[in-house]
Amino acid sequence: MDPDELEFLGEKSKIMIIPTFNKENIHLISGDLGPFRASLPSQVPLWVATLLKKQKRCKIIPPDWMNVEYLEALKEQEKQTSGFTRMPSDHYMVEAKLLLDCAPDDIPNADEVKVIIKDIWDMRMSKIRSSVTKLVKNSDFYAAVDNLTIMEINSVRPILPHALDNLFRMKHIEQPKPSQNSNVSSFLMSKRASTSFQLSNNEDY
């Protein structure tokens, strides 16, 4: 999946804004927003918040976790444990990127926040890489990825699933199978990673 599409999925999480305008309800298909009263906090989806912010019609209240103390603690915890820490939000990278891009003035110590989030990300990515190596080496065909966020899962795609596909296939080739499928070969079309060459037993192509 493209990072753009992940952003699309992450954009609907809710965030508090302080509008600088008065407006009755906005009736979106995904639900009603508002009513908006200038300087009274109101909850909107992230994509509405970024749009309004770009038009300079609101101030954004950063999510609870987007502050230096919380993130420092999180970073420390990530460093201490060998597993993955639960992240405050499933789309923390998307949220951080969007908010830090469009509203650095609303987030206290935005630069520092950015650095810590990047540090956490890097730490988690290196853990992911080593667990992927372990998984492939053991050729396990099952792994729990409970505390990984969608963006992190996406970062090992398509290489990890594809590697496992191939391992799985090799394992099944080892055990001789009844030859019912032997004259059927299936080819990988296009860039879709989930499909691939299925080796057939008779090499007639």
């Binding site: 990988l188 989930s194 499909t195």
Partner: peptide, 8 residues
Amino acid sequence: IEPNNNSF
């Protein structure tokens, strides 16, 4: 051409 349903 068949989809590979054993993919991960």
